[in-house]
């Protein structure tokens, strides 16, 4: 548990870096280093304040690069194939988006394109860009706006929901068709695993880990 700040005397000059405000209830805490596996929770509302950063910038960059490779695989391979009386039908993510557009559900096509392709892709590319420079001990060009963009995109990536959706679709189709799982679904499974790992990473740590540029 982080200790609460009890008076205002300590708030001079740069010491504001050492403070932490709970985003869920506005309680002010003094930051303290956390040991491996430790998570600081707000005493008032129970929200997570901070957690130990087990992954270094290098490890994060490696994860992002892996996720990018898997993401490409997940997008170029068909997800699964249906068979009926010797006819076969397979689709990729983009095949699905285009079909929805053509079938009059443009809203769904746009939602799927955003949450399953554009937002995850932007997120990974921005994270890769920022981490690549952070590794060299610098802030990437466009650091501040990109960090803000990353924060905004955060909740709009839904690859893990899509994986569960694919499972439900397979089970539904299984009653009437022959179902063959294709590489795409495995790539999506791996992608979900990777996303789960870096979902717990707070990229905001880069604000503290990289030096502020001299004005």
């Amino acid at each position: 548990m982080a200790t609460a700040v009890r008076n205002t005397d300590c708030l001079h000059a740069r010491s504001s870096d050492a403070l932490l405000i709970c985003e869920h209830c506005d309680t002010v805490y003094r930051r303290r280093p956390l040991a491996r596996g430790e998570v600081a929770r707000c005493v008032r509302c129970g929200a997570e304040l901070d957690r130990h950063r087990a992954l270094s910038v290098n490890a994060l960059l490696a994860l992002i690069l892996t996720a990018m490779i898997v993401f490409v695989q997940a997008n170029i391979w068909p997800i699964f194939t249906l068979g009926l009386n010797g006819q076969f039908s397979a689709t990729t993510l983009w095949g699905m988006i285009v079909t929805m557009w053509e079938q009059g559900a443009q809203v769904v096509a746009v939602l799927a394109a955003g949450t399953l392709f554009f937002f995850p892709m932007t997120k990974m590319m921005v994270m890769g860009w920022l981490l690549w420079f952070a590794r060299m001990g610098r802030r990437a060009p466009g650091f501040a706006p990109l960090m803000v963009a990353l924060h905004r995109i955060g909740p709009w990536t839904m690859s893990e929901v899509f994986v569960l959706g694919a499972l439900v679709a397979i089970v539904k189709a299984h009653t009437y068709f022959e179902v063959v799982a294709d590489p795409g679904i495995y790539a999506y499974g791996a992608l979900t695993l990777l996303i789960t790992i870096f979902a717990g990473v707070d990229m905001r740590q880069l604000w503290e880990q990289t030096p502020e540029p001299k004005p």
Partner: peptide, 14 residues
């Protein structure tokens, strides 16, 4: 969003 993706996938495949 689960159900939306299920419908989208089935539409594209069936």
């Amino acid at each position: 969003m689960l159900d939306v993706f299920v419908v989208a996938l089935l539409t594209a495949l069936v």
